[in-house]
Design a protein around this nucleic acid. Sequence first.
RNA 1: GGCCCCGUCGUCUAGCGGUUUAGGACAUCAGGUUCUCAUCCUGAAGAUCGCGGGUUCGAAUCCCGCCGGGGUCACCA
Length: 480
Amino acid sequence: MKPVRTRFAPSPTGFLHVGGVRTALFAWLVAKQASGKFILRIEDTDKNREVAESEQHIMQSLKWLGIEWDEGPDKEGSYGPYKQSERLATYKQWAIKLIDSGRAYADPYTAEQMDAFRQEARDNKQPFLFRNHRPENPPIWDGSMPLRFKSDPKTYSWHDAVMGDLHTGPEVVDDFIIMKSDGYPTYNFAHIVDDYEMKITHVIRSQEFIASVPKFLNLYEALEIEHPILATVPFVMAPDGRKKLGKRDGAKDILDYKREGYLPEALINFMALLGWNDGTEQEIFTVEELIEKFDLARVQKSGAKFDDQRLLWMNGTYIRNLNIDRLIDEVKDFWPASAEVYDIEYKREVLRLVQDRLKFFAELPSLTTFFFEDLTVDTSLISNNKNLKDLPNDKLAELLTISQDKLSNTTFKADDLSQCLNDLLTATDSKPAVLFSVLRIATTQAPFSPGLAETLAVLGKERSLGRIKQQIETLHGALD
RNA sequence: GGCCCCGUCGUCUAGCGGUUUAGGACAUCAGGUUCUCAUCCUGAAGAUCGCGGGUUCGAAUCCCGCCGGGGUCACCA
């Protein structure tokens, strides 16, 4: 049994989104499961589409997610280089081998001639096949013209690790360009050479390539090499519509999830379940579990729509299960600016209170500013509160005044506060819905906040009482 | 148009001829958790298994036909 080697082979044409990364994840899982190697190869054979910085961006994205490669452009291995633009000599060697065996020839046609051929096929409602136009006496290939593979059309049956057994007829096998006139190979040629040279055992790629497989199979034969295990994973679909997720559908840069405060393990879990499950009802998987349980044969054959609600839920689940030390660390760049002057212990207490409420870290400021900043009284909070809006201001002020007195005599430890608040309910003969609401609003000036007692305990005595006083004054002011 | 792939609640899915009155999760709605928001718990609603034929005592599951969607037919990957 050959040691398992899988690869992810993106072209540096922009950022990575969930669609592409999921394919990388699957390949990585297959390698990890077999204690094999995962290779990152940059397929930069199209200079025109290349986007500056994207190679770095791709590597950063994978690293953030923990999808580490064993060999790649920045990581020496026995089969490098791992950038196709640095492997041109290799492709040329293989191309010459093909010429020598009579399986490749120069393509002498102009773009205009090609267009005419294609138009003719379209007019006849036929698929375009270049081999119907093979030149009788092709010129010697000098690199100034494209080099085409001379196909040997036949029927193919093959097994796809995801799709199962597939069959096609000879009509899909055609002569395709293997070397472009700019000296670069095409994907169709380069990836086959590289996968072979890099001893790749599983080619895991997305659906758009499935129709090309018979052509690849034909090329493997001409090259006299065995083809690796083929696995075709379905698209990740855009949330609306039936098309695959793309940048036009608002597919986000993976690093945007980092910026918004998503946890890499949540994203990994989410992506793994987008088209795969282990047959049980388990939804939350650690990376170790995924490595152990992942199976290409259980990958769905149909596309899965990207559902950000589900991702949000999953991220919240992961945040809730994080221990506080890790959470403190993860969240350090997300605090409101006003939190900067506070010490880590205070932040830790705040964080404990909002941990259950956080879905992603960028929400942190909206949940916590009242723990860090001086507040101004927002009268609409009372007038919009169904339990308070019908009570007269002097009644509310009275409740707060009594509370102020009682609270000033407690230690402001959580237990004492709970006791004190309970005593206040009887002393004022109030319902929690009234007393706690007005106190909560007075001390937070926020439409929602964590529980009253714990919030007061974190805010501390001085600040809590000051805010209650401020609210009383505003209520009195409104009376005049 | 040729070829190929796909088709179970709104979404992700379980299901491999009978334990299925089609199960779970997200989302939605309702109730509970001394106040709000969230968590948590309980419950509800939600799928004539794309459609039509067969095979079978019995089909989401097997066969055939159709329909719908997608991919591909580049000197892009």
